[in-house]
Simulated scan of single mutants.
Amino acid sequence: MALPQLLSSTSSNFTLKSSLNPISSQPPSSLHSVRRIGRRKLRNIRCSASSLPEKHHNNNMNSPKTNDDVLELPLFPLPLVLFPGAILPLQIFEFRYRIMMHTLLHTDLRFGVIYTDSLSGTADVGCVGEIVKHERLVDDRFFLICKGQERFRISQIVRTKPYLVAAVSWLEDKPSGDGAPEDLDDLATEVEGYMRDVIRLSNRLNGKPEKEIGDLRRNLFPTPFSFFVGSTFEGAPREQQALLELEDTAARLRREKETLRNTLNYLSAASAVKDVFPSS
C-alpha cells in the first residue's frame, strides 16, 4: 500500500505498507532488488566493500573469532533494511556474488544483509537472510527469495574479496531496563490499533473503497510483531535501522507507536483539508 509522504517521529518521511512482504528500496546498481515477483521492472543495487567503516578492518584477515557466539558470515551491503520474518526477493548477476551464491547453495543458504548509504556509511547491525527459494537463470544469474532470520552485529571484517565476509555475533532483545514494566501485549495491541487507523485514513485519501482491515498482528508475539511493524515503514531506512538495532521490544514498540501516532495526526489533518477542499 502506497501512502502519501508522511511525518514520522524522526522527521523522516515514510510509507506504511501493509503487505506481508514489505521490504523495498530506492537502490543504485549491482544486484537487483525486486519488490514484487511479476512484471515490475527490476531495480539495481550496488554492493561495495569500500563503504565498510574502517573500524571493522583487521590486519590479520585470517584470524576471526571462533567462540560459540561468533561465526563467519558472507555480507550483502544494501540500501535497505531486512527484518526478521520479512521477505526479500533478489536477482544476483554481479560476478563476485554469483561466486558467493555457488558457495551458499552448497552450504547453509544464509548470508548477512547490512544497511549502507552514502551519508551514514555501513551499519554495524544487520539481519541474516536465508534463501528459501532460488532459480538459476540461463546466463548464470540467480533469482532468490530470502527470509529474514536472526539479527547480528559485525565484530570484524574477515576478508573483502571476492566478496565480504565478517565475523558476527548474534543480537537478541533483552528485558526492559527502564524501570517501567509494561505489558507488551497491551503495547502491541495499541500499535496495531494505530496501524489500522493509518491504513484506513490512507485508503480514504487515496480514494480507495472502505473495507474491513484484516488481522494485522496475525497471532505474532510482541517481539516478532515489532519487527513486522518496522518492516512496513517503507521509505525511511534510517528509522528502520534504528528500530532493528534496539535490543528492547518495549522500546521498539513505543518508538513505532510514536511514529504511527505522528503519521495519524498528519493524515487526519490531510483528510480534514480534503473534506473542506475536495477538488484539491
Rank of each mutant, 00 (worst) to 15 (best):
8 S>Y: 04
10 T>D: 12
15 T>N: 15
28 P>E: 15
31 L>T: 05
32 H>D: 14
34 V>W: 12
38 G>H: 01
40 R>H: 15
45 I>Y: 01
45 I>E: 02
50 S>G: 14
65 K>L: 14
66 T>D: 11
69 D>H: 15
76 F>L: 15
80 L>Y: 05
83 F>N: 08
83 F>C: 00
92 I>G: 00
96 R>Y: 03
96 R>N: 10
107 T>E: 09
109 L>M: 12
116 T>E: 12
131 I>V: 09
132 V>A: 00
134 H>D: 03
136 R>K: 14
141 R>V: 01
155 S>R: 15
158 V>R: 10
168 V>C: 06
169 S>C: 04
172 E>N: 10
178 D>W: 04
179 G>R: 03
199 I>H: 02
200 R>H: 08
201 L>S: 09
209 P>Y: 00
210 E>T: 10
210 E>P: 02
216 L>M: 06
216 L>H: 07
219 N>L: 10
221 F>A: 15
223 T>M: 07
224 P>R: 05
229 V>P: 01
235 G>L: 07
237 P>G: 04
239 E>P: 07
243 L>F: 10
243 L>A: 14
246 L>R: 06
246 L>C: 00
250 A>G: 14
253 L>T: 05
258 E>V: 15
260 L>K: 05
261 R>L: 14
262 N>S: 05
263 T>E: 08
265 N>D: 14
266 Y>A: 12
269 A>H: 10
277 F>P: 05
